[in-house]
Lab assay of single mutants.
Amino acid sequence: ATNIVSKVKWYNSTKNFGFIEQDNGGKDVFVHKSAVDAAGLHSLEEGQDVIFDLEEKQGKAYAVNLRIK
């Protein structure tokens, strides 16, 4: 899926990962520091509106092509 609009559930800049809620009630989506860095960001804030693409690797959903709404 591409261009999903949602909100950051939480992000831990010390552990370099977090999760984004899915508005459709699906499972929370993992977001890694590499996606945050690629977006030119230093961190994410809880409740922040984001747009991302969903990529599945080894049966897990990852946020990629992250951008701020």
Rank of each mutant, 00 (worst) to 15 (best):
A1T: 13
A1K: 14
T2P: 06
N3M: 07
N3K: 06
I4D: 03
V5H: 14
V5G: 09
V5L: 11
S6N: 06
S6K: 04
S6M: 06
S6H: 05
K7Y: 06
V8S: 00
V8Y: 01
K9Q: 03
Y11K: 00
Y11S: 00
Y11E: 01
Y11G: 00
N12M: 08
N12P: 01
N12E: 05
S13K: 13
S13Q: 11
S13F: 10
S13W: 10
T14A: 13
K15D: 04
K15Y: 11
K15M: 14
K15L: 15
K15N: 06
K15I: 12
N16V: 03
N16R: 15
N16A: 12
N16L: 07
N16T: 07
F17V: 03
G18L: 03
G18F: 04
F19I: 04
I20L: 15
E21M: 15
E21L: 15
E21A: 14
E21H: 14
E21Y: 15
Q22C: 14
Q22I: 11
Q22M: 15
Q22N: 14
Q22G: 15
D23L: 15
D23P: 15
D23Q: 15
D23A: 15
D23V: 15
N24P: 10
N24F: 11
N24V: 10
G25Q: 09
K27M: 09
K27D: 09
D28N: 08
D28K: 04
D28G: 06
D28T: 05
V29R: 03
V29Q: 02
V29T: 06
F30S: 01
F30E: 01
F30C: 04
F30L: 04
F30K: 02
F30A: 02
V31T: 03
V31C: 03
H32T: 05
H32G: 07
K33Y: 07
K33P: 02
K33Q: 11
S34M: 10
S34D: 07
S34A: 09
S34V: 08
S34W: 10
A35Q: 11
A35D: 05
V36G: 02
V36T: 03
V36D: 00
D37Q: 14
D37F: 14
D37E: 14
D37M: 15
A38C: 09
A38N: 08
A38P: 02
A38E: 09
A38D: 08
A39I: 08
A39D: 01
A39T: 06
A39V: 06
G40T: 04
G40H: 07
L41S: 04
L41P: 02
H42E: 13
H42A: 13
H42K: 13
H42C: 14
S43G: 13
S43W: 12
S43K: 12
L44G: 00
L44M: 05
L44H: 02
L44T: 00
L44V: 04
E45S: 13
E45K: 14
E46H: 13
E46C: 13
E46V: 14
E46S: 15
E46Q: 14
G47W: 05
G47R: 06
G47Q: 06
Q48L: 09
D49M: 15
D49F: 15
D49V: 15
D49R: 13
D49Q: 14
V50A: 02
V50S: 01
V50R: 00
I51V: 11
I51T: 10
F52T: 02
D53E: 05
D53I: 04
L54K: 07
L54E: 02
L54Q: 04
L54T: 06
E55D: 08
E56D: 08
E56N: 11
E56I: 15
E56P: 03
K57F: 13
K57A: 11
K57R: 13
G59W: 04
K60Q: 10
A61Y: 14
A61E: 10
Y62T: 07
Y62C: 08
Y62V: 06
A63H: 01
A63W: 02
A63F: 02
A63Q: 02
V64L: 04
N65R: 09
N65P: 00
N65G: 03
L66A: 01
L66M: 03
R67S: 06
R67A: 06
R67G: 04
I68M: 10
I68C: 09
I68F: 10
K69E: 11
K69N: 13
K69R: 11
K69W: 14
